[in-house]
Amino acid sequence: MPSDDRVPQALEALAGARETFRAAVAAAAEEVRGFVAAHRAPADGAAERAARELGPFATGRIDTSRFGALFGGAEPLDASALEWLGRAQAVLGEAAGADDRYFQADVPAGADLRNAANAALARAGRAFGAARVVELVRGGRFRETDHAAYLESFPPALWTRAERELAPPLVLAMAGADLQVGGLAELLLGSQKIVLVVRTPAPPAALVRLITPGVFVIQASDAGGLKGLSTVAGAAVGAVIAQGAVQFVHDPAAGSTLPARLSVGTLPAEEPKQALGRYTAAQQVEELRQLASLARVNAPALLALDGGPAPVGPTLADKLAAWLLQQAAVPGM
């Protein structure tokens, strides 16, 4: 695909999340390095290693040969364990020093968006897989047949809650006709951040399907609209759609009720009539209406086309739903 300035801009918007991920991975890499160093047969004397471990304050104060003699020897690991630890360490090192490419992928035309996102996150998540391999090796539970693949691909479904909080952010470049976002919902956990850079005309309100109480959702016409996405608490998804899309933001932190959380830009005067790839016109219309309904936007033009009655305020079900949400009062929701 041709280069698109919006991809680096989207990556820039996720800089904070990338740094958080890199820092966590770097810390893990250091820990593994220390562990490997401690369990490898020492290439130099225990005294020298003790001197380095104790630091300059110990110089002239602690007899490092005595210290090293007593604490120099963790049980050496066998060659196989060291090899797998080395491989895991390499994966962690690669992730810690990863450039922007680590956090982006292209969705091939016609591909399933959820699968593409899952695969890309699994690749980026191999850093977590490496950490898991280290734990398994240290615990003596590593089995090559079951666990070696973690170093290549470690899908989000296997991530722990803590890992989801450190999730690598992801920028996906794709065609508008493939913007079937429903499957992304299962990936938007913890602090996962995903940005979709849409290169061709797209349905006007595709991301409405991802509006759920705890997820930040934004549709913007340019990457500048994503500014601050990294600092959003919890999961967030954004789409940069240049042509034909409604701009809206669902910010869970903005209020306890949906109208307070959801702000919608101008809705189109006419409903879509053309299919976009597999996206039928009816689907697009349904999403647009759903967005208008959620925002309680007065959209007579749209409703007139449908011939149905105009909304007259919250229904009993709306009120009940709002009340339930208030009662839930779950932190982060």
């Binding site: 250091e30 562990f35 160093a37 369990h39 380095r52 471990e53 300059p56 963790a74 240290r138 615990g139």
Partner: peptide, 17 residues
């Protein structure tokens, strides 16, 4: 200026069985 050394990070505790 201190020059941090990898060895300052004490190895994590041995979690072998």
């Amino acid at each position: 200026r201190p020059e941090p050394r990898p060895e300052w990070f004490s190895p994590p505790p041995d979690q072998s069985p």
